[in-house]
Design a protein around this nucleic acid. Structure first.
Length: 489
RNA sequence: GAGCCGCUAGCUCAGACGGUAGAGCAUCUGACUUUUAAUCAGAGGGUCCGGGGUUCGACUCCCCGGCGGCUCACCA
């Protein structure tokens, strides 16, 4: 469909030509001096101050010889008043070739209308941008009630610019995400960490159990993977003497999409020498507190109707205890067959699931939904945690935790395994037994452990999910500016 | 991957039992010199998601497909 097959767009294109024909550049290269709209609104109208500002036309109310308009910029909205008797005819003519959505610059004088609205009486105007595509019109009445809000999620996700322009919720949420990430960085930088960047394009993938995206580097005629985690590279840095290090970046997992999963998501991973998973619990608590504070939130927040208390310390519950308590049975002591029967009775798919898979599924079934208040689930079974150090007093368990809020897994951390021989054995066994580990064992990672990695704690935080919790977003997609969608027809 | 729901004008939505599509906003024309969901009068605007089928006739019923939403499954 060509642009002008839509009659509304065709009309705008005509006005665009008309502007050009009368010597007006509809896309001038520079903006005259202007004040942000919020500053205009903050001025004292008694003085009849001269002001210059610019913004997008959001509403237009014509009254014969006069026109009221609302224009907005990111800082706010202000009303303009045009009077044809007091404007040069050329200016009035330009005005008649503007539409909702156009961006204009005006100069004028402040006054307050009969209705008490601070208004710029325009004496001069310029078109800065002629919008050729109509913006959906959303109206807000005097009670603040929004009318005809654009609600089609498809339209909003595909055309995020429209969403951001029209929906204050979206705009504020995504700004909050940025502020939150800045707070995480500030906290870590202030705590002596350094931020690094590790490869996204990898010849091997690892650091998590996930299906990778596969791509190809033409120059070397070589298959590559998009990273699924940053873990193995950050640990090389630990070996190299970066003892407090973190990365905030995208990981890619070639798996399903739902409310809490996106194929492309942002993870914070940090590693810190001379500490362990206990230290990581403190880090996580402090990161969450810093993030909440940056958004002006206290410890009491609401998420999807749930009241959540972010006050630290967060609860700690051993994995096995929680599993047994919520299931009412000693599941951890059962063998594979018994677990499979148990899971089968609950209608959980057990095909191909090994014992650790079953334990994890059963945990998800019985315990995860109950973890509404911030909770560290600690001491995971060793089979679920190939990169974590075992507990000295119990070889079945590891020094690992996952952090949950509102039933959502937000973080995963452990006392990092640094025994090179043990780590090699675990990774090789895993590579042999698991069909989809095409990447093989990361020898360079093992080489680094052989050189010697100091005792350390490591922590991974799902940044998008933390943003969900702190901005009360029902879907991870709401926290991602451009979430992945299927190709449009 | 499965089930359910949805897709009608630029936007939000109606459309009884199958009879050839409507409203509000937006757009266009006209009126109006302080309005603010401005108001008033008039006009234009549709591949009813796509493709098949049933039927004299399909937005409507059936089948296949697309996209989206929700739920489930998958996902350390």
């Amino acid at each position: 469909m060509t642009l002008d097959s839509n009659p509304i767009i065709a009309g705008r294109l005509l006005k665009l030509s008309a502007l050009r024909a009368s010597g007006v550049d509809p896309y001038p290269p520079r903006t005259p001096v202007r004040l942000p709209i919020a500053e205009v609104r903050g001025m004292n109208p008694e003085q009849g101050d001269a002001v210059q500002t610019s913004g997008r036309i959001r509403a237009r109310r014509e009254h014969g010889k006069t026109i009221f308009m609302d224009i907005s910029d990111p800082s706010g909205k202000v009303q303009l008043y045009f009077n044809s008797r007091e404007l040069p005819p050329e200016t009035w003519e330009i005005l008649e070739h503007t539409d909702l959505g156009d961006i204009i610059w005006v100069a004028g004088v402040l006054f307050v209308t009969r209705m008490g609205e601070l208004t710029v009486k325009v004496t001069e105007m310029k078109v800065l941008v002629k919008a050729v595509r109509p913006l959906p019109v959303v109206k807000v009445d005097s009670e603040g009630e929004v009318h005809d809000a654009v609600s089609d999620p498809d339209l909003l996700y595909r055309h995020r610019c429209v969403d951001l322009l029209l929906n204050a919720d979206s705009r504020e949420r995504l700004v909050s995400r940025s502020r939150m990430i800045k707070a995480l960085r500030d906290y870590l930088d202030g705590s002596g960490f350094i931020e690094v960047e590790t490869p996204i394009l990898q010849q091997l993938y690892g650091g998590a159990n996930a299906e990778p995206f596969i791509t190809k580097y033409n120059f070397l005629d070589q298959q590559c993977y998009l990273r699924i985690a940053t873990e193995l590279y950050l640990k090389r840095l630990m070996v190299g003497g970066f003892h407090k290090v973190y990365e905030i970046g995208k990981d890619f997992r070639n798996e399903g999409v739902d409310r809490t999963h996106s194929p492309e998501f942002t993870q914070l991973e940090l590693y810190e020498a001379w500490t362990d998973y206990e230290g990581m619990m403190l880090r996580f608590e402090e990161l969450v507190s810093a993030a909440a504070a940056a958004l002006g939130k206290g410890s009491e927040i609401t998420f999807q109707g749930l009241s959540i208390d972010l006050a630290t310390p967060f609860a700690r519950v051993p994995f096995v205890d929680a599993l047994h308590r919520h299931s009412g049975e000693a599941l951890f002591d059962m063998d594979h067959a018994a677990l499979a029967r148990h899971a089968g009775r609950l209608g959980i798919a057990t095909g191909g699931a090994d014992r650790p898979d079953l334990l994890d599924k059963l945990f998800d079934h019985y315990v995860t939904p109950t973890l509404v208040q911030p909770t560290f689930v600690i001491d995971y079974p060793v089979e679920l945690s190939p990169l974590a150090k075992g507990k000295p007093d119990n070889p079945m368990l590891t020094e690992r935790f996952e952090a949950f809020i509102a039933g959502i897994e937000l973080a995963n951390a452990f006392s990092e395994q640094n025994d090179p021989l043990l780590q090699r054995r675990i990774l090789e066994e895993q590579a042999a037994s698991s069909g989809h580990r095409e990447g093989g064992v990361d020898e360079e990672f093992l080489y680094a452990l052989e050189v010697g990695m100091p005792p350390a704690g490591g922590l991974g935080v799902g940044v998008d999910r933390l943003a969900m919790i702190l901005t009360d977003a029902g879907s991870i997609r709401d926290t991602i500016l451009f979430p992945h969608l299927r190709r449009e027809k």
